[in-house]
């Protein structure tokens, strides 16, 4: 049924299948040298150097983890400082809708016991940093994503096992499907496939 839009499958990418990581790396270099920019590779293991060949870099995750860690540390100490009424600001100023600090004199230690308050703040630093690392990685990777146009390619069934797939995406400015297929064949892959998508239309 048409909604006034063109919902027919569109070209998404051309993929070539290789048998080893080294063959893939070699092919990726040639593809980059041929001027293709929007590339990706799908491999069962992390192949080091691929992202360098693709001239693609992303350091955002490190910052996310760092900031999460800072947030955890601050949150931990803030919680301990506020709940123990550590700094003598008027109590009413700190009251939030019936929430009160609960100052306790423990062995005459200061209300804000910096060293003794360290372990919970430390654990919260680690907890939030770990959340940042895991959920940040998933978010930047766009996962979970149960379906992806690439799963339409027959060779993707073995990309998690023993096949190394090189992909040139249709978003590439120099993308001309027939030319890409022709170029990919010259890399002597095991197979070349055109991948279509109906996503986003």
């Amino acid at each position: 049924m048409s909604h006034g839009r063109d919902t027919s499958p569109k070209p998404f990418a051309v993929v070539a299948e290789f048998g080893t990581a080294d063959a893939l790396l070699e092919a990726a270099k040639k593809t980059r040298a041929a001027g293709y920019r929007d590339m990706d590779a799908y491999t069962p293991i992390p192949v080091h150097g691929l992202t360098d060949v693709m001239e693609w870099h992303d350091d955002k995750l490190g910052w996310v983890v760092f900031l999460h860690g800072c947030a955890g540390f601050t949150l931990g100490y803030f919680l301990e400082w506020w709940t123990s009424g550590g700094i003598a600001i008027s109590n009413t100023a700190l009251q939030v809708n019936g929430l009160n600090p609960y100052p306790m004199n423990v062995g005459g230690k200061p209300l804000f016991s910096l060293p003794a308050f360290f372990p919970p703040a430390y654990e919260l630093t680690i907890l939030l940093a770990a959340f940042g690392a895991v959920f940040g990685m998933l978010a930047f990777n766009g996962l979970p994503k149960p379906h992806h146009p690439l799963f339409n390619a027959a060779c993707m069934g073995r990309a998690s096992s023993d096949r190394y797939i090189l992909c040139v995406e249709a978003t590439d400015p120099r993308y001309d499907e027939d030319a890409v297929v022709e170029f990919m064949r010259s890399l002597e892959p095991l197979s070349v496939e055109r991948v279509m998508t109906s996503e986003g239309y």
Partner: peptide, 11 residues
């Protein structure tokens, strides 16, 4: 979760 082993994802 739809892992497809993209080089960017692995990175």
């Amino acid at each position: 979760m739809g892992w497809r082993g993209s080089a960017k994802h692995w990175h």
